[in-house]
Design a protein around this nucleic acid. Structure first.
Length: 175
DNA sequence: CCCTGATTCGC
DNA sequence: GCGAATCAGG
């Protein structure tokens, strides 16, 4: 599953916006998923956008990302990152984003930090928390398992064997 | 040691 | 075109 990664128009567009927004290559890579920061930098150069957003004169500091971009990015992440576990357990979010089914189950106690897209790092859990269309949207942010995008808690929810999923019906609830 | 982007070069 | 390895630096 999850074929066709690579620089699709979508991903390139996202890359452009984030880079021009002053995001670091590593953060952009983490958000895109499936690519390293080297790949991002390489692509940036090939696209001819090397050198950050220069307002004109030197000493110009990149402006902080707008709220809109932050939210758009969050949505993009959910659409490009979450598909793996989400597509299996529930259904891919519709264009307008269909809120996940309410979770009647008390998925154990979780003490996560919750981080915004801005503070999300490669080693942090990328499990989406809440509604991406709201400013309150966050990612789990807990230490992720090496090699996986999620922490132990969310990895358990994300990667459930098809067979086991049948009897032990657990729903991906983004909480 | 954490991070940053830049460049090279085999694929 | 792509991106890992590497370089140079903060």
């Amino acid at each position: 599953m999850e074929a066709g990664l690579g620089w699709t128009d979508d991903r390139v567009a996202l890359l452009r916006r984030l880079w021009e927004d002053g995001q670091s290559a590593s953060k952009i890579a983490a958000q895109l998923g499936g690519v390293t920061r080297n790949a991002v930098i390489g692509k940036v150069h090939r696209l001819g956008l090397a050198g950050r957003a220069r307002g004109g004169e030197e000493g110009q500091v990149a402006a902080p990302p707008s709220k809109i971009v932050e939210i758009e990015t969050a949505i993009a992440v959910v659409e490009t990152q979450a598909p793996e576990p989400v597509a299996i357990l529930s259904h891919r979010p519709a264009p307008e984003f269909t809120p996940p089914v309410p979770a009647p189950e008390p998925v154990a106690l979780q003490v996560s930090q919750r981080v915004t897209i801005m503070d999300l790092r490669e080693s942090m859990c990328r499990w989406p928390l809440g509604d991406p269309t709201t400013p309150e949207f966050r990612f789990c942010g807990a230490r992720s398992i090496t090699g996986l995008p999620y922490c132990t808690h969310h990895a358990e929810i994300a990667y459930q064997p098809a067979t086991e999923r049948k009897r032990d019906r657990r729903v991906a609830s983004f909480r």
